[in-house]
Amino acid sequence: MFDLLTDVLVKNGLLTAFAVVGATIWVSYWLSRILTNGRLHGSAIAIMIGLALAYAGGVSTGGHKGLADIKLLSGIGFMGGAMLRDFAIVSTAFGVSFGEIRKAGLSGVVSLFTGVLLSFVVGAAVALAFGYSDAVSMTTIGAGAVTYIVGPVTGAALGANSDVMALSIAAGLVKSVLVMIGTPFMAPYIGLDNPRSAMVFGGLMGTTSGVAGGLAATDPKLVPYGAMTATFYTGLGCLMGPSVLFIATRALMGG
């Protein structure tokens, strides 16, 4: 009987994922109402539960895909994978005002360059403080602080060591997780309540998963604006990391 049940759940992985995620969200909204009187948004709690489950899944299976490594829940991997995630992100653009995007265009572009540069400098400085003083390692870890995709892309282009690569990916993951959790708490203090600041926010943070999760938990209406700029961030980072940022770091550090 148990085998039959798991067999059905595994074979229909995506449907299992829908049911599990639906139940998680139901519990989250209930917790939001009971514990925080609705002040902490249900979706914020759902994302935190998701991350906690990902940690539990990672510990129990030793894999890298959180809950999706558990065979019974592999459908989570498909449901939250890049294809459906980007599909849902694009769909949020429906009904967005083009005028808003044009009005915030300049600050959006400024935020992209500032965001990549700022995260890179911070990451490289931390790397230096921890004794990684060669230009390749500093650039790779700095690029990891940009996003966890820019890190390994840059590291691979520069031929960085695998421990440095791992560190660089970890820095990017910390950033993405922190943006997901922290955004709803920080939003009132940084004026994150309108399309313009959401676009700037997306450009500064850049981590698509972080911005997508963080804005969803803050105000779903802001998601398309933040996601729009954030999707240019990783590309810009991959462009700048192994080129100008590496050259600048090498010039500064010598070697």
């Binding site: 829908f18 995620v21 639906g22 969200i25 979706s43 759902a46 994302i47 935190m48 539960i49 998701g50 991350l51 906690a52 990902a54 940690y55 899944g57 990672g58 510990v59 890298h64 895909k65 959180g66 809950l67 999706a68 989570i76 449901m79 939250g80 994978g81 459906l84 995630r85 849902a88 992100i89 769909s91 949020t92 990451g123 931390v126 790397a127 403080a129 921890f130 990684y132 870890i141 990891g144 602080a145 791992a166 560190l167 990916i169 970890a170 820095a171 990017g172 993951l173 910390v174 950033k175 993405s176 997780v177 922190l178 997901m180 998963s209 997508a212 999760g213 969803a216 779903p220 998601v223």
Partner: peptide, 29 residues
């Protein structure tokens, strides 16, 4: 969109993010 983002959160490599140690943590924070 939100359910999909929750599924996305549930498959992040949180273990690696935590294991990265103080350097990764500090850089990210």
């Amino acid at each position: 969109y939100i359910p999909i983002v929750v599924a996305m959160a549930a498959q992040q490599d949180v273990v690696a993010a935590v294991k990265g140690g103080p350097a990764a943590l500090l850089a990210g924070v």
